[in-house]
Design a protein around this nucleic acid. Sequence first.
DNA 1: CCCCAGGGGTACC
DNA 2: GGTACCCATGGG
Length: 272
Amino acid sequence: MHRRINVSDFDLASTLECGQAFRWQRATDGWFTGIAGGRRMRVRQIGDTLEGNVDPHYFALDVPLAKIAATFPDDDPLRAAVKNHWGLRVLRQEPWETLASFIASSTKQIVQIRQIVAHLARRFGDNDTFPTVDAVARATHQQLVDCKLGFRAKYLLAAAQAIDRGEVRLDRLPAMEYERALEELTKLQGVGEKIAACTLLFSCGHNEAFPIDVWIERSLRRLYFPGRKVTARQLREFTRSHFGPYAGWAQQYLFFQERTRGRQPLPDAIAQ
DNA sequence: CCCCAGGGGTACC
DNA sequence: GGTACCCATGGG
């Protein structure tokens, strides 16, 4: 259903290009097309107007971004990142799609992750939607390898089968305590703390999750501990105590800031 | 804590 | 048309 809605404190391009979702593409005319939650979407933003078949829940338009930002620590690095990418929101994605995509993401760069997910959708999905748990659980290992999953194929297959059998219940993750949910997900082979944190932040409403990958680790060391030796464990402790109840949102701003550092700011929808 | 496998796209020569 | 580089996880 095509519509226009008025939005505030929202930036479509930052939200879709910050690395949290893998199925969106920006056309030269400023429209984004993507497939999420089992359906195709086409969306663009002009000023405070969001146009297209917009799903407000998916884009977390009901979330009061200013109140979230008010919970952030008032430090220079985060203030700069928030200023540069204001309007970036953590999407509400599907847990299975998110978990599977991040299992596929292990030691891959974003371009390759997008390709793997596209292969999976084309081969096992309905009309290029992300394949169901069931569809992946019934795939063969070789079929998944053919989707360029490499050594991750066995992890994705085992995860799909464990979820299909009810051994791991993704639907229970949102209501669990964060630490408990983390334990549950990391039972899966190929799912460590980072991938579990991504899944819990991007699809289960655990806003305190702070995924640490090499980009965010570089960012933290450079911005918060310049010239000091800190272990990975100290960094993890720091993120848990420093960033507050919406640490994951802070992480997205810092992450996107690090990824776009030294580049021209992305052109906004109206400019392109 | 360290070291290593791993694998396809990408940047650079 | 080489070749180094990137990188989460598990296992040693």
